[in-house]
Lab assay of single mutants.
Amino acid sequence: TTVHIGNVTYHFDNPEEAVKWAKEMAEKLGLRIEIHGDTIRVE
């Protein structure tokens, strides 16, 4: 599972961890997340 924040990509072996981490980052940055299969974007 990959999480994209701007130009930076993070890789997670556990999809649930990826979603949890992306949600925390989105809250901190005042952004929202979009999930497309195994790709998560924070925008």
Results as ranks from 00 to 15, higher is better:
T39E: 12
E34Q: 06
L31Y: 15
I33A: 06
E34W: 08
V3T: 01
I40W: 02
T1M: 15
K20S: 12
T2P: 03
E17A: 11
E43T: 13
H36V: 14
K20W: 08
H4S: 09
G37W: 03
Y10V: 11
K20D: 09
N14P: 01
M25N: 03
A26F: 04
E16K: 12
R32A: 15
M25I: 13
E24T: 09
V19H: 11
N7T: 11
V3N: 00
I5N: 02
F12P: 00
A22W: 01
F12G: 00
E34V: 09
P15M: 15
K28T: 09
E24P: 02
D13L: 11
E27T: 07
V19R: 08
G30H: 08
E16F: 11
P15Y: 15
D38W: 03
K28W: 09
G30R: 00
L29M: 11
M25A: 06
N7I: 08
I33K: 00
Y10W: 07
I35P: 03
F12K: 00
T39R: 05
R32L: 15
V42E: 02
V19F: 14
K23H: 11
D13G: 09
T9C: 04
I5W: 06
E24Q: 11
E43F: 15
I5Y: 06
Y10C: 04
K28E: 13
E16D: 13
V42M: 11
Y10I: 11
N7Y: 10
E17S: 08
W21C: 03
I5S: 03
T2E: 07
D38P: 05
L31S: 13
A26W: 03
I5L: 11
I40F: 01
E17C: 04
I5K: 02
G37I: 03
H4E: 12
D38L: 06
M25T: 07
E16A: 13
E27R: 06
P15R: 15
L29D: 08
F12D: 00
V8I: 13
A26M: 03
A22M: 01
R32F: 10
I33C: 04
M25Y: 09
E16I: 12
I35G: 03
T9A: 12
G6P: 02
N14Y: 08
H4P: 01
W21L: 03
G6A: 10
H36A: 10
I35S: 04
Y10G: 02
I40E: 01
T1N: 05
M25L: 11
K28D: 08
V8W: 09
G37F: 04
T2H: 09
E27N: 09
D13P: 09
K20L: 12
K20G: 08
T39W: 05
Y10S: 03
E43I: 15
L31D: 06
G6E: 11
V8K: 15
R32I: 15
K23L: 14
E17V: 11
N14A: 08
I33M: 10
V3K: 00
F12W: 04
K23G: 08
V3Y: 01
V42S: 02
A26D: 01
H11P: 05
G6D: 12
V8E: 14
E34K: 06
I33H: 04
A26N: 02
V19T: 07
D13T: 13
N7G: 14
D38T: 12
N7D: 14
F12Y: 05
H11R: 12
E34N: 07
E17K: 09
A22S: 04
A18Q: 00
A18N: 00
V19W: 13
L31T: 13
G30L: 05
H4I: 15
A22R: 00
E17I: 10
A26P: 00
F12E: 00
K20T: 12
A22N: 00
L29R: 04
E27Q: 09
V19Q: 07
I33R: 00
P15T: 13
K23S: 13
H11G: 05
R41D: 04
V8Q: 14
N7H: 12
K20R: 14
G6F: 13
T39P: 02
W21V: 03
W21K: 02
I33S: 02
D13S: 12
D13H: 10
A22V: 03
W21F: 14
V3D: 01
I33T: 04
N14M: 07
E16V: 12
N7A: 13
G30Y: 05
I35N: 04
R32N: 15
D13V: 10
E34F: 11
D38F: 05
N7E: 12
R41K: 12
E43Y: 15
R41V: 14
T2A: 08
K23N: 12
K23E: 12
D13E: 13
V42G: 02
H11I: 10
K23I: 13
H4N: 07
K28P: 05
L29I: 05
E16L: 12
D13N: 11
H36R: 09
E27S: 07
K28H: 10
A26K: 02
I5E: 01
I35E: 05
E34Y: 13
M25E: 09
R41E: 05
E16S: 12
I5D: 02
E27K: 07
F12V: 01
P15H: 15
T1A: 12
A26G: 06
I35C: 04
V19N: 06
V42D: 01
A18E: 00
D38M: 06
D13F: 09
E16C: 04
V42W: 01
A22Q: 00
A26I: 02
T2N: 09
A26T: 03
A22T: 02
K23P: 00
V19E: 07
Y10R: 09
D13Q: 12
K23R: 13
A18I: 01
K20V: 10
K28Q: 13
H11A: 07
E24I: 10
G30F: 06
E34A: 06
E34R: 06
T39Q: 11
G37V: 03
T39Y: 07
D38Y: 04
T2D: 07
K20E: 12
P15G: 12
G37P: 04
V3R: 00
I40P: 01
M25C: 03
E17N: 08
H36M: 13
E43C: 02
G6H: 13
H36L: 13
I33G: 02
T39C: 05
V42Y: 02
K23F: 11
N14E: 10
H4C: 05
A22H: 00
H36T: 11
T1K: 06
T1S: 08
E24V: 10
I40T: 01
V8D: 14
E27D: 14
E17H: 09
I33Y: 14
K28A: 14
R32H: 15
R41W: 15
I35M: 08
I35Y: 13
T9H: 09
H36G: 05
R41T: 13
T39G: 05
A18M: 02
E24K: 10
V8T: 14
I5V: 10
R41P: 01
R41G: 03
H4K: 10
I40L: 04
A18L: 02
V3M: 01
T1L: 07
T2M: 09
H4A: 09
P15D: 06
K20M: 13
D38N: 15
F12T: 00
E16Q: 12
E43N: 09
I35A: 05
E34C: 03
M25W: 06
P15I: 11
K23D: 05
R41H: 13
I33Q: 02
H36S: 11
A18T: 02
H4R: 07
G37S: 04
K28S: 12
H4T: 09
Y10M: 07
V8M: 14
R32D: 15
I33V: 15
E27H: 09
D38Q: 10
L29T: 06
A26H: 02
V19P: 00
A18Y: 01
W21G: 00
D38R: 03
E27C: 04
G6R: 06
H4Q: 12
V42F: 07
A18P: 00
N7L: 10
M25Q: 13
E24G: 07
E43V: 15
W21D: 00
E24F: 13
E27A: 09
R41F: 15
T9Q: 12
G6N: 14
V42P: 01
N14C: 03
R32G: 15
Y10L: 07
W21I: 03
V42L: 15
D13A: 12
D38E: 07
R32S: 15
W21P: 00
W21N: 01
G30I: 02
F12I: 02
G37H: 05
E43P: 06
R32Q: 15
Y10N: 03
G30D: 11
V8Y: 12
L31C: 04
E27V: 07
E43D: 10
T39I: 12
T2V: 11
E24L: 10
L29K: 05
A22D: 00
G6Y: 10
E17T: 11
H11E: 08
E17G: 05
A18D: 00
R41M: 12
H4L: 15
I40V: 05
I5R: 02
T1I: 12
W21E: 01
R32W: 14
L31A: 14
H11M: 10
K23T: 15
T9S: 13
T2W: 13
H11F: 14
H36K: 11
K23Y: 13
